[in-house]
Every structure is written in C-alpha cells, then in structure tokens.
Nucleic acid binder design. Structure first.
Length: 589
DNA sequence: TACATACAC
DNA sequence: CATGGTGTATGTA
C-alpha cells in the first residue's frame, strides 16, 4: 500500500512482497484504517480525472492542446543552458556520522531514529527494507539485529556547518536545503577557474579504525608516504598515508574537488548531480549514489532524452499523490508527461499545468517568493492519545512555552495569525486558526488564543498538538553591518583561506597551530585535523567527534559579501531551512 | 482569512 | 507498547 516505496537507492534485489507483508502485519488497526481512508481519497480523485478526460468535448480538448502548445513555446523561450548547477547530497547522512564516530556501527545494519520513526538507515539496513520514515519498531521486525541510534542533531548541525563552508568558497550564495543537501551555482566559479589545484590527500590505515577515509584494502600502498602515531581515542597505532591529488578546471573536476574536500574534512562521503538547473541537478545527484556524481550535459536533446525514461516519482515535488494522479493518465515517466501534456488543462489547475509542463521540458520550477524571510514558526508534539482536557492543557502550555522561546531566538516580534493543529487518535489532522486585531507576541497571548481554539475541540481524542504563528513581524535588522565587520576583522587576522589567495593555501606554506604551536601545513582540512587532535589531547573524553573545526576557522563562515558578485537573474534555489531545535523526547503520561 | 492537502527532508 | 517535526506552497470556500 502506501506504507512502502523503494524509490530511494540501496534496495536492489530484496523481497518486496515479504517486506510489504511484514509491514502490514505490524500496522495498527487505527493506522491501517487511516491509510485506507487516504487511499480511497486518492482513488476518488483518480476516478474524477478519468471522468473529466472521458467526457471532454472535442472543442475542449482542442482548446487544451492549444493552450499547452502556447505555454510550451513561452517556457521553451526561457530555457537557459548556460549555467552549472550542482546539488550535493550527503550519503545516508545521520547514519554516516554515527558510523564515522563509532566504528562498530560500520559493519552492522543500523539506523538513526526512535522506535517511532527512523531518520536514516545505513546501506546494510536498507538491504532489509529498513528505510527513513519507517517506524523503528517495524524495522526491528524486518531486521531483528538492527541497531537503533538516537539522533544527535546538534552534532549533525555542526558537521553540516563545516562542509557548507567548503561550498561557500565556490558559491558565496550556496543554499543549504537541509543539513545534508546543498545547492551550489558553480557558473561563475567555473568560468573563472583557469588553473588546476593540487591537494594533499590523507587516508588512514593501521590498527586504529577511528579515522576516515580508510585506504582501500586492494590499493597498492608500496609507494605511499606515511606517518605513524598513537590514536588519542583508541590508543592503537594509526598510519596516516598521504599523497597529492589534482583537480582540473571543468565543472566535473570542480565537483570532484568539492566532494574530495568534504570527505577529507569530515570523513563523510556525498553524491552530486550537475546540470543546467537545480531541478535537474537534484535528480542527477541520486544517479550515482553513494559517493558518486552524475553530469547531465547542458543540451536540450540530451536533457529530454534523459527525462524520457525517468519515473515521475524521481522528480522533486511529485509525491505519492501526484504520482497516482498522473498514473491514471497513463503517465509513468517524464517522457509520458510530454506526450500527454494536452490533457493537463482538463484535469489540473493552471499552476499545476505549468509546473508539470516545466518538469516535462526539464525546466526549473517557477521562481517563488523573493522574500527570504521565514513565513511561520511552530512547535508540535506527539503523545499517547488522550481526551483528558487537563492533560491536553498541560501539553499545550509546554508547547506554547517552547514556541515563545523559538520566536525570541528567531528575532521575531510576533505574528498576526495563530494556528492550532490537532491530530486525532484516528490520525486525521485538523487545524484551527484565528487572526486577532492585535499582533500576537507574548507567551500569554499565544497561550490565550490557541487555548481558545483548543477549548472548542473538547472531547476529541488527540495524539498530537501543535501551535503555529504566521504572518510574522520581525525585529528591525541591522545585521549586514555586523557581517561586514566580522569579515573585515577576519581578513586582518589573515584568513585561512579565500578564493583570492587560494593558490597560496594549496602551495605548502605553514602556519602555527593555535593550540600546540607546531608548524602545520596551511591547508584548511589538514589544519582542522591537526587542531582537532590537539584539542582532543588536552580536553575531554566527552566529545565523541573525531573531526572538529577550530574556533578560528569557524569565523570565516560569514563572508558572503566578498563572494556574491552580481549574478544573472536566475532560478531560485530552494529556500534555506531553519535547523530544528531538539529537546528530549517526551511521551506518555 | 480559514482550513485542508501535498510535499520536502 | 509503538507511525515525527518544521516549514512552504497551493486550492478552495
């Protein structure tokens, strides 16, 4: 049913039927009936679509076809094949971080999440059908030996900051879609890149399993230079091999270089897609996963050919429901979309028509709202279903307190509209909202208005409560000055790296380690590693992270001013998302 | 404006 | 035992 799809990578050749059966057997009655309800809603819509096509008159069909033809001409005129867009996606991100920091997890099936929900699974676990979005307790049935690791979001956030700094050197306006996904416009960088770059590559071997990347077992290491040392973590001997690697000037080479640097810095691999726009780059990033990249030539025919056989579900924005709708029109691949485009006006809204046609042509989505500011802020929690109103009020108060705190941290003064979200024990979701004449800002206001809404739902058995504030009012921001100052300060202190003096960094000058004073090769990744070792030596056993960026290096993050030269009007990157705040997971009464 | 849906990660 | 949390966009009334 709709519980399991093998859309994502890593599941070749497993027994789908068996997995589906295990999932069904372990699905609760209430969830199962909710799923059925959802499915029948989709079926209804599908019937409606078929019906509309069936009973459309000749004139209507003709009109629809003309309308799509005109739209296609208009859209085709906007095609831009001049850009180098890159989407970089970390491989099994949360799981990879946990595996990096605990070698025992590298060889067993493992997932990050709770018994209620998994965020990621490693590739070994995926072979059992264990995947992101699946409840942990069902995963355990599919794979009894599965190890569940609770997520450590502050750590994932920190690591994400580390590698986004690398991307920032290539595109000052890099868009982080989430902790593990980056959109990079390389056009300008590639155009200006005239020289190859050489990096020292560090890889590890010996008895110490801690550091990554490892030298492959089958590689001939006869002629590699190395250095032995005692690992500060496991006390075993670690052998660090090093050699030079070169990266040329084309976009593929530059992307290889970025991926190389990410792995050197964090010990994590990522995959990349390269194409004429971000919509295509995102699809491509999935093609050679894990630890690979895929380029789609900036050529109309090549793009259309690539899309012809591509299942529609691989396209960003087409989910379970749209897939079903389109399938009812015999559309399974993007190629089919192009063949059937004349039917769109009979079944879909104008926006949906355009969006599907853009997809079919390999064009990016409509650039959306130019206001980069966030539009809403919310907190929601799931708990054991209850209709006890006092209990719901207690939860509600806590949620309001958390929301108020988040609002303050976000530099938001208040908002016009307050929305209460409820999920019933049946899994049905309701929202109730109101817009008072005055802006809602204090904890008291938030609580008062949302409680008003909650009171009207007395008696319902509820499993989730949420409160959202929208139509936000922001603090007057004078941030740009701060950032500039920050950058100027950093510049005077001799920054570790910047595009202008990139060559100096690659060439081998040294720089004293701020911790131990020893001369260290002045290359960002190497320096970070060294500093990290030093810090580990002198500090705790506490921090489980192997790689931790130095404080100095961190300051360099804020430098978009320098890089953002005038850029052509272009497709909007997906908006950067706020990092979720984590608190201990509470549940039960 | 209010509410529901769909989607991404 | 047991199916998440945050945010955006869009359709419809």
């Amino acid at each position: 049913m709709l519980t399991f799809n093998d859309n994502k990578a890593g599941m070749g050749g497993l027994d789908k039927e068996k997995i589906t059966k295990v999932i069904e057997e372990n699905t609760s009655a209430s969830y199962s009936s909710f799923s059925k309800k959802q499915q029948s809603r989709i079926d209804e819509k599908v019937a409606e679509i078929k019906n509309r096509i069936e009973k459309a008159t000749r004139e209507e069909k003709q009109k629809a076809e003309n309308s799509m033809k005109n739209l296609e001409i208009k859209l085709e005129a906007s095609r831009d094949l001049s850009r180098d867009c890159v989407c970089i996606d970390m491989d099994a991100y949360f799981a990879a971080v946990e595996m990096r920091d605990d070698p025992k997890l590298r060889t067993i099936p493992m997932a990050v999440g709770s018994s209620a929900m998994l965020s990621t699974s490693n590739y070994l676990a995926r072979r059992f059908g264990v995947r992101a979005g699946m409840p942990g307790f069902i995963s355990k049935k599919l794979c009894p030996e599965l190890t569940l690791v609770p997520g450590n979001y502050p750590k994932y956030t920190k690591v994400s900051r580390q590698f986004s700094e690398i991307f920032m050197e290539y595109d000052g306006d890099v868009g982080m879609m989430s902790l593990d996904e980056a959109y990079i416009d390389l056009t300008e960088y590639v155009a200006n890149r005239t020289e190859k770059r050489i990096f020292t590559r560090h890889r590890y071997g010996g008895d110490c399993p801690c550091w990554l990347p490892r030298v492959p077992e089958d590689e001939d290491i006869e002629n590699l230079q190395f250095e032995d040392s005692e690992c500060t973590k496991c006390s075993k001997n670690r052998r660090a091999y090093f050699d030079d690697v070169e990266f040329g000037v084309g976009r593929e080479e530059v992307v290889r270089e970025m991926r190389f640097r990410v792995e050197q810095l964090t010990g994590l691999t990522c995959s990349a897609g390269i194409a004429a726009n971000f919509m295509l780059a995102k699809i491509c990033s999935d093609f050679n996963k894990p630890n690979g990249q895929f380029v789609l030539e900036n050529d109309r025919n090549v793009i259309l050919e690539f899309l012809e056989k591509l299942p529609i579900r691989k396209v960003g924005g087409i989910g379970r429901v749209s897939e079903a709708h389109l399938q009812s029109m015999d559309i399974r691949t993007v190629g089919d979309m192009l063949l059937q485009k004349a039917l769109f006006p009979l079944c879909f809204s104008p926006l949906a028509q355009e969006s599907f046609l853009r997809t079919a042509l390999g064009l990016p989505g409509r650039p959306s709202s130019s206001d980069p500011r966030r539009k809403s802020i919310s907190v929601e929690r799931t708990f054991s279903p209850t209709s006890d109103f006092q209990m719901l009020c207690d939860v509600h108060l806590e949620i309001c307190q958390m929301l108020e705190e988040d609002i303050r941290k976000a530099g938001v003064i208040g908002g016009k509209t307050i929305t209460l979200k409820l999920k019933l024990s049946s899994f049905d979701v309701l929202t109730r909202s109101l817009t008072p004449s005055d802006t809602v800002s204090s904890l008291e206001d938030i609580q008062k208005y949302s409680l008003e809404l909650l009171e009207k739902e007395k008696g319902k058995e509820i499993r989730l409560l949420g409160v959202r504030l929208s139509q936000l009012v922001f603090e007057e921001e004078k941030k740009s000055k701060t950032i500039t100052d920050f950058w100027n300060d950093a510049k005077q202190q001799k920054p570790l790296s910047s595009p202008e003096d990139a060559d100096e960094i690659i060439m081998m000058d040294t720089r004293p380690c701020p911790i131990c004073g020893a001369d260290v090769e002045n290359q960002l990744e190497i320096l970070n590693r060294h500093v990290d070792e030093c810090i580990q030596k002198m500090t705790d056993e506490e921090s489980p992270e192997l790689i931790c960026i130095s404080v100095e290096t961190k300051k360099k993050v804020e430098k978009p001013v320098v890089f953002s030269k005038k850029r052509k009007i272009q497709e909007k990157k997906p908006a950067a998302k706020k990092v979720a705040t984590i608190d201990s997971f509470w549940k039960k009464e």
